[in-house]
Structure formats: C-alpha cells, structure tokens
C-alpha cells in the first residue's frame, strides 16, 4: 500500500482531516473521504466538467487536481452553495427554468456559473454561453441552463444593488 498523507481540507467552511494517497484526486477525496458526493465524476479527463468545484473561489476540475494539492486552500462544493434551506439564486433559477433533467451534470454547472459570476457579475449573453461551453450536459440541450444562468445573474446583480 503506497504511503498516505495527512491532509487538512477546508470545504464549505468546515475542516476535514483525512489521510489519503497522493494519487487520489480532489474529486475522490471530496466524495469518498469527506462524504460530499454532490461532486460527480463523468470523464476524469477534464472535458465534461461534472466535477467542477471552487478552489480559492475559482472554478476548477476536481478530477485534475490531487487532494493533497488542496491543503491550505478553500474548497466550495455544491453542498455549500445554498444558504441553509434557502437555495442560491442559481439553484432557484435552474429549478424554475428546468435547467436540469437527470441532475448528474448539475453540480458542475452550478459551481462553474457561481465561480464565473463571482469574477464577472456582468457577463454578457455571449460570455455566459462561452463559460457554459466548459461543461457537458447530455439531457437539456443547454438552453434552459443558459437561460437559468442569465436570470440568476440578473437576480444576483439586483440583490447586490440593495
């Protein structure tokens, strides 16, 4: 058995102390060692984006980082998106606009959009489509995802002004 490393992860504001092989991806550490199974694995080679999470508030592929690399960084997953029982504006917009069907790609799209909107709350429709082209969805044909992100962005801007 290869050596394991002790790693302390800060995920969704909680601290997780785990002991993992260096080769274990951040996605696998989140899922299997932290029990946060909302982050999904669809390809494990960085194309589908189902595993997208925020590391230091930037959206990244959790299949292309090793868990040991997340030591000292903050991680946010789909489980940390809602405010208690109150859905995040993105989650609410996905729900109201049928932005999901099987739900497997959904956490990745939510975290992708959440990270991109943090960097640029005023994305144009073209920007949104360009960012959302990062991830694959097989069910929706994308247009309800694009629409949901557009409407959530508007809602988030409105809230920020208050």
């Amino acid at each position: 058995m290869p050596d394991k490393r002790d790693v302390t992860l800060a995920v969704n504001g909680k601290t997780y102390a785990v002991s993992v092989e260096p080769r274990r991806s951040l996605a696998d550490v989140l899922r299997d060692d932290c029990g946060l199974t909302g982050t999904h694995l669809g390809c494990e080679h960085g194309v589908c984006g189902a595993c997208t999470v925020l590391v230091n508030e930037k959206p990244v592929r959790a299949c292309l980082m090793f868990g040991v690399q997340a030591e000292g960084k903050t991680v946010r997953t789909v489980e940390g998106l809602a405010d208690g029982d109150t859905l995040h504006p993105l989650q609410q917009a996905f729900w109201e606009n049928h932005g999901l069907q099987c739900g497997f790609c959904t956490p990745g799209f939510l975290m992708l959009a959440a990270g991109a909107l943090q960097e640029n709350p005023d994305m144009t429709d073209d920007d949104i489509k360009d960012v959302l082209s990062s991830n694959l969805c097989r069910c929706t044909g994308y247009q309800n995802i694009v629409k949901a992100v557009r409407l959530a962005a508007r809602e988030m801007r409105a809230r920020a002004r208050i």
């Binding site: 997953t77 809602a82 996905f94 729900w95 049928h98 739900g103």
Partner: peptide
C-alpha cells in the same frame, strides 16, 4: 417545477457511486 429537483440541486442526488 419538478418535484425531483431540490435534492438534485443541493448535491443530494443519490447515484450508484
């Protein structure tokens, strides 16, 4: 709006893995 969605949106889906 779908009754299935709140769980799926919060990372509470239940897939085999």
């Amino acid at each position: 709006p779908r009754l299935e969605d709140p769980a799926l949106l919060k990372g509470g889906g239940s897939y085999v893995a």
